[in-house]
Amino acid sequence: HATELRLSHQWSNNDIRHKVAQIVADEVAAANVDLDIKIFGSQSLFKAREQYKPLSRGQLDMTVLPLSYAGGQQPAYNLTLMPGLVKNHDHAARLSASPFMAALEEKMAQDDVMVLVHGYLAGGFAGKDKCITKPEDVRGLQTRAAGKAFEQMLAGAGASIASMASSEIYNAMQTGVLQAVNTSSSSFVSYRIYEQVKCYTPAGDVALWFMYQPLLMNKSTFDGLTEAQQQALRDGAAKAQAYYLDEAKKEDAASVKAFADAGVEIAQMTPEDFAAWRELAKETSYKAFIADVADGQALLDMALAVD
């Protein structure tokens, strides 16, 4: 009788993150090591933000999730959704292989969690009435940001922060409750935000918004597998990670196409804009992070040291 692992995530079947999980599952099945990964997508098992706790307690074997969702349990994870820390996808890949990530993986190990597949996804800004490229652009706008650190930075730029579920964004943009939104490229497309905005600032050569969304596994469960099963998982994960990086880049281009096709103006963030945001972030979200986390400064320095 094959060992069964249960993997939970929040996305639909055609989402890149589901495909990453599927590759691992397929590879493991093909390896014939008596291991079977059952995928529960679309929050059919656990809600998006309720996955890390069962994972760390061994009630769930695997998950693909934005690690910052667990920032309330391990505040260090907030560095995985920190403005201006990641410049582009290749830089993100270098971060994943750096001592910074090794330090984060030590934190995960405290919760009996390990990483199988590393991966970052990028995002941008959309404005209902105008383009958002630099901090001055968001002053006075009702803004919905994805992530605590972004809320702190945007508030620092004079934006008003409105918190609501991502499924409410479309209506809120349409009726004007919201005037600006900041989220991932894929969410922009899947929530059809392009129908409601005038201007889109995608992730380009420089981008502000990167979110670390790894495929995680319960460590004890992994350690309990046979050597062959562990190897099959590692092999599948390596293949999935290469795919993840490739597709993450394409995702940004696809979102630009969706917005352009809908007649939305496409704006670009210049390196100067990026620098201005990062200065602002240092005064707001970085500062708050360091105040909040005991070894925060050291972790931040490790991340900033990655070239």
Binding site: K47, E50, P54, R57
Partner: peptide, 14 residues
């Protein structure tokens, strides 16, 4: 063990 967590999670919705 998960039941209280799921009960709370289902209600955790604005």
């Amino acid at each position: 063990e998960l039941i209280p967590e799921i009960l709370f999670g289902k209600l955790d919705n604005f």
